[in-house]
Design a protein around this nucleic acid. Structure first.
Length: 314
DNA sequence: AAGTACCTCAACCGCATTGGG
DNA sequence: GCCCAATGCGGTTGAGGTACT
């Protein structure tokens, strides 16, 4: 195929940016905007490719970038969002104003990932490693451990399945209760009438968008790893139950006391218990408040519901 | 003090996606 | 609908700094 390189390599500088280059770039963008990144270097008089300029601007020079160490709240947000979104750093960054996807990615890889590993959690899925896989194969970084989880699903598809499950459940409920729902809506159109409402909202938000855009290739892969009899929805429910448990604070704790939920995943969750979930369970419910008013044009979660609403479907 | 190992993070690379012609 | 350029995104690299021996 041979896509042409993003820029002609000859004569273009690579590596760290000098203060002078930074100054030129900032001055030019402040004056003229970045416009076409490809043509920017030439117009600004920089010996860099447009891609490099864009990266430098978005990751370092942008005026709204927040510097300095991550706060505990930001850490929690990242961990929780990673539990939901996986390695969708740009989506995670949307919830952390002033932080770049690159910064979050680096912080995750150098700090948070290790912390989860120390807690006995799979940093990819946030689930405790399955007993069969704990013996050998978690060496090496990267995605090596991804296959260790419950089904053969990949992290991204498990996250997608989680979303899909919540969405389907919400839609089913709403269709069942549509008359009641719409009649009662007149009193307060903005107030969620049902917990599943939040998922529909989130699904229709920017965050949900990122899932709808997951390439079908991933879904096909998912299908191919599941027996024909098991629909993707059924799989999704299982995955959602498992994964959502790990990312839910209140629910995670109550789940241990209510083993009547999905038996296929309950074993894992039982084994995880408090110790392996400690980090996630420690989060107060209103830590998910970052969703409120920040996704789309509406609040997504009320304080009393938070994410715990995500699992109460059977 | 010197050498080595480890850590951090800015920057690069290449694939995926988007959008215009 | 197809092609291609532009842009976005996530994984990876490597230089520089720090800690340890």
């Amino acid at each position: 195929m041979g896509r042409a390189p993003c820029c002609e390599k000859q004569g273009l500088k690579k590596g760290p940016w000098s203060p002078e280059e930074d100054e030129i770039l900032v001055e030019y963008i402040n004056k003229s905007g970045h416009g076409s990144w490809r043509s920017l270097p030439k117009l600004a008089g920089l010996l860099r490719c447009g891609k490099s300029c864009r990266l430098r601007w978005t990751n370092y020079l942008r005026p709204d970038i927040k510097r300095g160490p991550f706060t505990p709240e930001e850490e929690k947000t990242i961990i929780q969002l990673h539990g939901i979104l996986g390695n969708r750093w740009s989506s995670i960054a949307l919830q952390l104003p002033g932080r770049t996807d690159n910064e979050i990615k680096n912080f995750w890889n150098t700090h948070l990932k290790k912390r989860l590993v120390r807690m006995g959690l799979d940093p990819t899925t946030h689930a405790p490693p399955s007993p069969s896989s704990t013996g050998g194969g978690t060496s090496g970084g990267g995605g090596g451990g991804a296959a260790a989880v419950t089904t053969s699903s990949t992290p991204s598809t498990r996250h997608m399945a989680q979303w899909e499950s919540a969405r389907l459940e919400a839609e089913a409920r709403l269709s069942r209760e549509s008359l009641l729902f719409f009649s009662s809506q007149s009193s307060d159109p903005t107030a969620p009438k049902h917990e599943s409402d939040y998922f529909l909202r989130m699904w229709n938000s920017d965050v949900g968008d990122s899932f709808r855009k997951i390439p079908t290739k991933a879904a096909e892969l998912e299908e191919s790893t599941v027996s024909p009899a098991s629909s993707s929805t059924a799989m999704a429910t299982t995955a959602a139950t498992t994964t959502a448990s790990t990312i839910t604070s209140e629910r995670g704790a109550s789940e241990a006391a209510h083993p009547e939920t999905d038996s296929s995943s309950s074993n894992e969750m039982d084994e995880s218990s408090e110790s392996s979930l400690q980090l996630l369970l420690d989060f107060p419910a209103d830590d998910m408040g970052f969703f409120q008013g920040q996704v789309g044009n509406f609040p997504l979660f009320s304080n009393e519901l938070t994410v715990s609403s995500s699992i109460k479907y059977e």
